[in-house]
Design a protein around this nucleic acid. Structure first.
Lengths: 327, 327
DNA sequence: GGGTCTGGGCGAAACGTTTCGCTATAGTCG
DNA sequence: CGACTATAGCGAAACGTTTCGCCCAGACCC
């Protein structure tokens, strides 16, 4: 089954078929469609499958967070073990999505790993037609069943963090979530809610604020919480970065952590161990998550089954210095 | 001038010539040489020069520091503006250098950006033969004149940091340097020395310790300094990461920063602004440095001149909360 | 309406790359 | 020392990719 066969089937030249396969621009939409049908119909595969470029693409929104860094590092390590390199694309705010996508597909890749990002329906289709796998880490919305994704047990993590605070004796526990549209933010919040329920504590809307996973948000929202009539004695931050913002806000407000305020983060970035005070947090195995994602990409690279896989790795509460019984 | 011509000239097949051009392993050393001579003799160039893969490679030792991250981000941004992608390779400790090098060269790249790393003589030759440019950021040793490199004004930075402390009234100023083999570490230390001299202060060997740019080293060495007969009233850390280690050590030793101890870092990583207390530091324009490096790669990609460029961008003292007059 | 220009879309042919098998040489065993 | 095996090195041919020019449709001008 060669390119020439496809060309004959579809009444076009081998050159044109090649262009479609490589996402070249000088093919009309109609022709492209005809070729793609012929490709699928004939079950075409490149001959030596070794031609696939030894690249794995990691794409993320410009959040320059340690969280992303850890994932990239994990991906790089896993890729290197397979003789692959990680190429990475940071999407800045206003970026037209087409740009990076065209870029990656025209250059070729072994698979695409999306951090917190989403593909358009069109893009999904194009990838499927070319047999390029992709996997989402911490998907934004509930992804379809045919989309592979990797995450952590966010709900359990939120539960564990809150339970820890409750067991220390805290009754008023503030929350600063991540962006509400993210699945992981919502799961963590639900874990919090569930822990309160189990403990027989009321859920108070006034104590729940949303942030964006950055330090500044943690800082600002912590100040809001400090201004509440009855100040919470503990804060569960959506991630470590905002938890660090909370620590900072506490210091500026003259509150001692953990004596006057307990703080729990989420992620366990390397910094959490070195902040002052060191941060109690819910550890996500980011390195492993990236490794799993790479494995999914490589596995699904060969096979045609379009059934997605959903993997959730376990989280782990790491107790350090930022939590204590309320003063 | 095609591959076939070269083949005829050297009495070999086009296939073999192609293999040489692509660094394939199944060519004997002699044959490879013959072909390379023929290539040079005939002045061969690939036809469409557009085939150069749209990749820039960033290679660094596994230091997982925010410093490297900033540079990678800068490189990614600059590359994206040119329609290129950044591929990145983290060298772990025991890595055989050949591995990554063969990998990158066989896959192809537009240029290589080395962070704190070094190439062997052989590798330099191989890159030159293939016309692949490279640039070093913060070179380890004095690089030859034909090597391009980008850095910051480390000496001035060290000078400015120390001068700042001296002007605040500090007389005993400890230093925790980076790895001594790095040019930038030594330059910063010399700046420190020079500032002391200008101020008429004696240089005391007991106050100079070396670290490795990580938090733990900052922490450990700070404890050593605290144990000195006359404890220093200020510490100049080789980079922000070790400065954070110092902050932590100070807290564990019951010293208040900046009342009992002033701390200055180097780099101005994003975190410096958010640490508690926020860190006075010498800012390196990392993003710009990476952008300059990318520009050098692309500029020298076309031309044959093998003369290296050395660029040093200006550093800048950023005064925050971690420095004050000695108590 | 006819001429001219422009650009998108396609294919022929030139080109580079890869696979696969052949050959010669080195290494191994009895 | 001969037979057998393994391996490195190379080339023919199959294959995919790219360039370049042709064709044609639409826009524009006169």
């Amino acid at each position: 089954m060669t390119i020439a066969d496809i060309a004959r089937r579809s009444g076009l030249s081998p050159a044109t078929v090649s262009k479609v396969l490589n996402g070249r621009p000088d093919v009309s939409a109609r022709t492209r469609l005809v070729v793609q049908e012929a490709l699928v119909g004939a079950g075409y595969r490149r001959r030596g499958s070794l031609e696939a470029p030894p690249l794995i693409d990691v794409v993320f929104n410009d959040f320059d967070s340690p969280w992303a860094i850890e994932l990239v590092r994990g991906a790089a390590a896993a890729a290197q073990a397979e003789g692959l390199t990680v190429a990475f694309t940071a999407l800045s705010e206003g970026d037209e999505r087409r740009i990076w996508f065209d870029h990656i597909t025209s250059r070729g890749t072994r698979g695409i790993m999306l951090l917190l990002s989403k593909l358009t329906e069109r893009q999904r289709g194009e990838l499927a037609a070319r047999g390029l796998p992709f996997v989402v880490i911490d998907p934004t919305a509930e992804p379809g069943p045919e989309v592979s994704s990797v995450g952590a047990t966010n709900w359990s993590g939120g539960l564990a963090a809150t339970k820890h605070l409750v067991e220390l004796g805290h009754r008023r526990i503030g929350v600063i979530t991540g962006p509400p549209e993210l699945l992981c933010s919502r799961a963590r919040l639900d874990g919090y809610r569930s822990a309160l329920e189990t403990a027989g504590l009321a859920f108070d809307d006034d104590l729940v604020l949303s942030g964006d996973f950055r330090m500044k948000a943690g800082y600002d929202q912590a100040q809001v919480l400090f201004g509440r009539r009855r100040r919470p004695t503990a804060i569960f931050a959506g991630n470590d970065l905002s938890a660090l913002g909370v620590l900072r806000a506490a210091r500026d407000a003259g509150l001692r952590v953990p004596d006057d305020l307990s703080v729990v983060g989420f992620d366990d970035i390397p910094l959490a161990e070195w902040s002052t005070p060191s941060l109690t947090t819910v550890r996500q195995p980011l390195i492993e998550m990236a490794a799993v994602a790479v494995r999914i990409l490589l596995d699904s690279s060969g096979s045609d089954e379009s059934l997605g896989r959903r993997v959730e790795l376990a989280t782990d509460l790491v107790v350090r210095e930022s939590t204590a019984p309320p003063g």
